[in-house]
């Protein structure tokens, strides 16, 4: 099954980076983007999203609000929810797990970390 990754971040540069990394290596994934929580919830209704990369600090609806909305819908139980944060010291996996996330990615985003969170093989390791 093709992975469909939804990146939710109010900052354009940080929102585009995951798709640039994945497109560059021609990985068989579809990346869709949106800049706020409300749009993310609308996109989840339209697309068969498998992974959500969720920024924590966003205006209006925060990443945690979006997380709770997604968790409340049983049909979204299969979606892997990944925190996408610039907060170096908050990026403790255990802390995010206790919030309800499946994983956490720290900004600045690293390719190896992104592939690990998406359960995809790291091309460098195979080489």
């Amino acid at each position: 099954m093709k992975k469909i990754i939804l990146v939710v971040d109010d900052n354009l540069i940080n929102r585009m980076l995951p798709s640039h990394i994945l497109r560059f290596f021609d990985l068989n994934v579809q990346v869709i983007e949106c800049e706020c929580g409300e749009d993310a919830l609308r996109m989840l209704r339209v697309h068969q999203v498998t992974h959500v990369l969720l920024d924590i600090f966003m205006p209006q609806m925060s990443g945690l609000d979006v997380l709770n909305e997604i968790k409340a819908v049983p049909a979204y139980a299969h979606i892997r929810l990944i925190a996408y944060t610039a907060d170096v010291f908050a990026a403790e996996a255990a802390q995010f797990e206790s919030m309800g996330f499946d994983d956490a990615l720290l900004k600045p985003l690293k390719r190896a970390e992104l592939l690990r969170a998406l359960n995809m093989p790291n091309l460098d390791e195979g080489a």
Binding site: L17, A86, P108, R111
Partner: peptide
């Protein structure tokens, strides 16, 4: 928050260019 967000964008993209 604004400074950190902008800087992570710069670092993220420069690492991407470095690796590709």
């Amino acid at each position: 928050h604004e400074l950190r967000t902008s800087l992570t964008g710069i670092v993220g993209y420069s690492e991407f260019v470095e690796s590709t």
